[in-house]
Design a protein around this nucleic acid. Structure first.
Lengths: 213, 213
DNA sequence: TAGATTGTTAATCGATTAACAATC
DNA sequence: TAGATTGTTAATCGATTAACAATC
């Protein structure tokens, strides 16, 4: 892997979109594509796409463009999608179930190895072949299985002590659906937040301030 | 409402975070806060916070800071959280159920008035007091209720024709959980995407390129 | 070869940070 | 009044776009 020094988050966040679109082209049997075509389909500039890709290396051919299969593979590689990071999910509520199913199907980069909850109603139920385990057994499970990532689908109030436990068990990577501010608490942890409510509020702002009401 | 010309998305996306934190302070009975305190708690610069807030007006008092209650109310107002935009949700799968529950509880800015699905298994079931309705009755429902926003929790393949229908029924605002590119298809629509898979891939990249693991 | 399109450098634009005068 | 902190202007930094030489 070449270059890849300190790529900006702006670039990184565009990569999955490129990847998705290229997969779509692939499935349609498209063989090559130019940055100009890509840009018009994605609503970006050709310059930006070339700039982005060249953060990681020159994947195109001058005068020809990019080979879809190859570029797709390169981006998958850049994103690290062939990894199988051992992952646990905590919180088997509606959202947890949705995420667990999602990760069971499309396990690109991650492998879900355990789902935990503290509710007797949930423990023992099956979500996509995974039995929901008792959170009481978390320590032992972690010592044995050494997961590297945790998905947090529990309410804000419950995150504090749980995160502390996970962190001391060596889990430093989090996909966080709660509003608990993990990144501030653990500066060396890697936190990807999904704040659904923030997203909704942003939409609310935009609707409120758009001509159409 | 003052100024508010063309506020950048960077600013808008920080507002919900401010709002959340201020609500937290409020619940703790904190009366005033300075931009410096705020900035250290949120991991931003004081300058940025003042700059952001002053896009909408001067809410602080020189030499004193910001009154928590007041600033909170101002941001709620800016975000338009007192609205009750009539909203429908399509797709009562795991994710749809999670979102529906979420929107039923925290209905800031939106009011969920109908949940739709096409599966006989789902139709008639109850999600947080809302019966899941047959998608076949969507047209009539829309004519009668005039929803202004639609949450799309259906797979990519199903979005095309559905979005077309919603759009022609006058719905121009979408909270889109699918990978269908609505914004490109309907340039005048207001689309807020939540791409969970993109978020996960981004995390995968970051883990793969971090010192740990 | 001529045409097309990349990779890359330079120019522009926008967002963040710093500084400080205004003022509570 | 003196101290603190805002609102706002100016400086810096980073990201996007434009341009074009390299080259397939």
């Amino acid at each position: 892997m070449p270059k890849r020094d300190n790529i900006s988050m702006s670039v990184i966040r565009r990569l999955p979109r490129y990847y998705r679109f290229l997969r779509l082209l692939q499935s349609k049997g498209v063989v090559r594509i130019s940055s100009t075509e890509l840009s018009s389909k994605l609503g970006l500039t050709a310059s930006q796409i070339r700039q982005d890709l060249n953060c990681f290396g020159g994947f195109g051919q001058q005068g020809y463009g990019y080979i879809v299969d190859q570029l797709c593979a390169e981006i998958a590689n850049i994103l690290g999608l062939s990894n199988c990071y051992k992952t646990i999910l905590v919180g088997a509520g509606n959202l947890g179930q949705a995420i667990a199913s999602h990760m069971s199907f499309e396990s690109e980069g991650f492998h879900l190895i355990g789902i935990f909850d503290n509710s007797p109603h949930k423990i023992g139920t099956i979500i996509n072949d995974h039995p929901v385990l008792d959170i009481a057994g978390l320590d032992e499970f972690c010592r044995k299985e050494k997961p590297v990532m945790a998905v947090l689908c529990i309410p804000r109030e419950s995150v504090g002590p749980l995160a502390e436990k996970l962190y001391t068990m060596g889990i430093k990577n989090f996909w966080n659906f709660s509003h608990y501010d993990l990144a501030m608490k653990y500066p060396d942890a890697l936190v990807e937040n999904v704040h659904l409510n923030d997203s909704l509020m942003t939409l609310c702002y935009r609707i409120s301030n758009s001509g159409t009401q």
